[in-house]
C-alpha cells in the first residue's frame, strides 16, 4: 500500500477507537506512527503533541504533522480527513436522527439521563487536565486566575488563555 493509503487506513482505524476523547488513543497512535510505520520518531511524536497544545482546534490535529512528515501536504490532508471525516459524518447522522425524534417522552428521558453522565465525564476531563497542566505554584495560580476570570468575571476564554500564555512565557521559564 502507498504511504498515503497507509495514513488513511491507520488514522481512519485509530479514530474509530477513540471513545470518550482523543487522549485514550495516543498510545495506539504512537505505536502505529513510530514503531509500525516509522513515519516519525518518538521525539517527533511527543513534539507534535506539544505543537497541538499551542495551536487552536482539536488536539488530534497533531496527525497533520505526522502525515506531513510521512508524505508532505497530501499526507497531512489525508491524515486529517481520515481522523475527522468518518466519525464526524456519523455524529451528524446521529444528530439528524435524534433531532427527528423531537419531543417524544423517551427523548426527554434520555436527555435527562445523559446530562449527569456528561457532567461527570467533563469533570473527569478536568482531572486529567490538572494532572497534565498543573505542576507547581506558578501553574496553579494561572489556573485559579483563569477560573475566576472566566467564571466570575465573564471574560472571554480566548483572552484568558492568551494572558496565561504570556504569564507562562514571563514566569515559567
Amino acid at each position: 500500500m502507498s504511504v498515503v493509503g497507509e495514513l488513511a487506513a491507520v488514522f481512519g482505524r485509530v479514530s474509530l477507537l477513540a471513545f470518550g476523547g482523543g487522549l485514550g488513543i495516543l498510545p495506539e497512535m504512537e505505536r502505529q506512527a513510530v514503531e509500525a510505520h516509522r513515519w516519525v520518531t518518538h521525539r517527533e511524536f511527543v513534539d507534535a503533541w506539544a505543537l497541538s497544545q499551542v495551536t487552536p482546534g482539536p488536539g488530534m490535529l497533531m496527525v497533520l504533522v505526522i502525515g506531513f512528515r510521512a508524505s508532505g501536504l497530501v499526507g497531512a490532508l489525508v491524515a486529517g480527513l481520515a481522523m475527522f471525516g468518518p466519525t464526524a459524518t456519523l455524529a451528524a447522522v446521529i444528530a439528524d436522527r435524534w433531532g427527528r425524534l423531537g419531543g417524544r417522552l423517551i427523548v426527554a428521558v434520555l436527555r435527562t439521563t445523559l446530562a449527569p453522565v456528561a457532567l461527570g465525564l467533563l469533570a473527569a476531563g478536568c482531572y486529567t487536565l490538572v494532572r497534565l497542566g498543573v505542576d507547581g505554584p506558578g501553574t496553579a495560580l494561572i489556573a485559579l486566575g483563569a477560573l475566576v476570570a472566566v467564571g466570575w468575571g465573564g471574560l472571554s476564554p480566548a483572552l484568558v488563555v492568551a494572558a496565561g500564555a504570556i504569564l507562562g512565557l514571563a514566569a515559567l521559564r
Binding site: A50, L132, G164
Partner: peptide, 28 residues
C-alpha cells in the same frame, strides 16, 4: 521554544474547563 508558552496555555485551560463544568451543573 514553545514549551513555556504551552505550560501557560495548559494551566489557563484548566481554569476554563473547571469554569465550564461549574456552569454546566445547571444542566443536571
Amino acid at each position: 521554544i514553545i514549551v513555556p508558552l504551552g505550560r501557560g496555555v495548559s494551566a489557563a485551560s484548566v481554569g476554563l474547563a473547571i469554569a465550564a463544568v461549574i456552569r454546566l451543573r445547571e444542566g443536571a
